[in-house]
Amino acid sequence: MENIIEMTQARINMYGFLSRLLIEEVDPFTLNKIKENEDLLELFPNTKEWEDFWEKDTMKLVEEDLNVDFTTIFILNVYPYESVFVNDEGHINPTITNPTLIFYREHGYSIDLNKTRALSPDHIGVELEFMMNLVQEELNALAREDENEVKRLREIQKKFLEEHIGNWTVPYLLAVKDIAETPFYYDVADATLEFLMSDLEYLYNLEEQPA
């Protein structure tokens, strides 16, 4: 069995990384990091092949291509909010009746939307960050060998994936892939989709195995 600690840490990183990429436009610093890291580039197969990605000045790439694509996808076309997909009329539901918010609250979390530009707590970036928080807690529990807590936290993660972030994101990210004009965001959507699916499978597997 592979090192569970490492695995959990990796999950944390992944959730965090994806959250960052989806919550806001990418910044040159992060972009450069990706460029420089072979392993990371593995996540962006299409972007790797993209000429402009290598040739254009990073700042310009961000301003002229990536930001435009971000706006086109996430601001103008496919709102990255769970409630848009879940309710009939496609409203964003930022109110206290939002099921995702209720989920957060029930499990002892609150959202400070002022930290982001998200209009609602069920933005995909926030949901990813939430998962990250849960996994972070799992890591803490693992470190102090609190079996029950670990189990509990994994339950919550599973539930959240099943009911929320693993659910609506499937059609959502497919739609994003469809609309994305830059290979970069195509890859982001693809990677996120794959990751979420595999993470759920991972949690199921853990359940079946004895700890």
Binding site: Q9, Y15, K115, M132, N133, F195
Partner: peptide, 19 residues
């Protein structure tokens, strides 16, 4: 996935801290 990302990015630090 995991290997490549494991230590490289420090993704946790990138989040906005909304939660």
């Amino acid at each position: 996935f995991l290997k490549t990302v494991a230590a490289a990015v420090g993704g946790a630090a990138l989040v906005k801290g909304a939660v």
